[in-house]
Structure formats: C-alpha cells, structure tokens
Amino acid sequence: MLPTESKKALSFKRCIEDGDLVIVYERHDVMKPVRVSKDGVLQNRFGVYKHSDWIGKPLGTKVFSNKGKFVYLLAPTPELWTLVLSHRTQILYIADISFVVMYLELVPGCVVLESGTGSGSLSTSLARAVAPTGHVYSFDFHEQRADSAREDFEKTGISSLVTVEVRDIQGEGFPEKLSGLADAVFLDLPQPWLAVPSAAKMLKQDGVVCSFSPCIEQVQRTCEVLRSEFIEIRTFEVLLRTYEVKEVKVDDGQRQDEDIGDVRPCKRKHRSNEDNTVSHDNSSVAPAATTSVVMARPCSEARGHTGYLTFARLQCLS
C-alpha cells in the first residue's frame, strides 16, 4: 500500500498482478479487500467475477461479472483500508486521523509510538506519514488483537514500517529501549494519565504527545498529569459534516414558448415523474420552463462525537 522505495512509487505500478491486494468497489458504502489470485473468483449479488480477467488491467477500471454487472478495482489507500478493515475495536476515522498526523508534526523519518494498536486504522496512516525511513512502534495488551494487526500489516505490505508488540502500556509503560527516541507518542487508552510519565520519557525534547479519549473526565485527569512536564496543552474536538448533492428541477414559473429549445436538453437528462406533473399542470398551454439546479445540503446523519484529542509538547529542559 505504501511505497518504501522509488521503484514501488505509486504511479509506476498500475496494472493488476497475481497476488495484489485490491479494493473491490461496488458502491461508496460497499467495498471489500480482495487478494488477486489467478484461480480466484469473487462472488457478490451481481454474479461471479474471475480474478484471471483482472490481471493485466490497470487499477481504477471496471471489471464485469458473468451477468454483465461491473465493479471497480482500486488501489488500496489507508483511507479505503479504514473503510474495509475488520473492526476489532472502536476505530479512529478520517477527521481525527488527519488531525492527529498533522498535529504530531510527523514527517518522513520520524519515530512514533502508539498504544493501543486496536484495529490498526491509525497505525496505517502513521506509517504513511513517516515512510520510507521512519517507524511506528505499536503496542496492545491484547495478544490476539496484536496478532491480527500484524497479519493486516503484512497483508497491506506495511509490516516493514510498523512493529507490533504485546504490552500493557498503562501498567508497564513503553519499553526502556525506546527511551528518548520518539518524535511523537499517541495514546488511545482507557486511563491515559497512567501512561503519560512513560510517554514523556520516550519523547525527544520538544516532541509531541496526543491522547484520544471519548470522555471529558479522562481528558481532565490526563491534563492534570501532563502539566508537570508538558507545555502547550491543547484539547480539540474535530468532526466532519458531509453533504449530499442533487440535481433538482426547478419550475421557474414562467411560460416560455421561445426558450423551449434551450430547456429541453436538461429535461431529457432526468426524465422522471416530475415531467409528467409539469405537463399535467399546464396541459392546455405550453409547458412551464424548468431548469436544473445542483443543490447541496448536509447529510441527515452524522457522527456527533468521536473523542477529544489532547496534544502537548514535552518541555525542553536542557
């Protein structure tokens, strides 16, 4: 998924090969990761797709099922991966992920520590930011979860950038060997304040820590502990509002005999029941002129809260 050397640059390799991981895109909310194998088949409600038909095609193209229905094959990105990965835990979503990466000031070559690993949604984006020479050390106290995450990173081809270890960070802190090496530390723990002293130890001077907590009480306690060694303590909440876009036909209320030629192409595009209504209402005279207007409005459902993001910078003491 992430290029670790120039030969694997994203724009160089665009044809699907045996063994590739692709995202099968049915709809914006129906996607699936698939490993291409020359004998493999994909089956969905639209029929059967043979992988052998896919090999050699560029990514981003349509492929057809035996019933003539199509899906798109896409190159995996951390964003698509976040949408398709199996949720072993509550995961971080794009708004929080983007903000965290930006605020931790991650650039290629950085070393970043993370706990817990969870489903590995954030880890993938952290790896993208520090590639090709940096590294993500991710810790989770849940052995099976750590194993699954490791398998996932193997699958997405980023295992050279992410090391997953089983460790209870709240109880034991981060391992001593990483002391003073981290450019940034990310905490997503039920009691993050317990891990703050260890995070401070791991960080280089001026390094940034971030703690993600859903509850304000957790933030409160974390901030109290942060104050002894950190400065620039700031807490944010970041959310996304998505918009739906629609082409709506508007009756401008005027009877236009001359302009009808101009209007017709628009009407043809979306000939629907509205058209009938129009002609019905104006049955005796020329039809009312309608124009299409593209309109946007916020989607009716949205996430109202994910968590608070608290950032702080290790004080420079020497």
Partner: peptide, 19 residues
C-alpha cells in the same frame, strides 16, 4: 483551516515517493 489542510493531505494519500 489546519483541519481542512490535514484532510486534503490525507484524502490525497500524500506519502513518500508519490508524484
């Protein structure tokens, strides 16, 4: 705003070796 900038970088999958 900084959060919009961070979204742009994320959504455009900006990473090493990309053009």
């Amino acid at each position: 705003r900084v959060d919009a900038l961070s979204l742009l970088l994320t959504m455009a999958n900006v990473t090493a070796y990309s053009d």
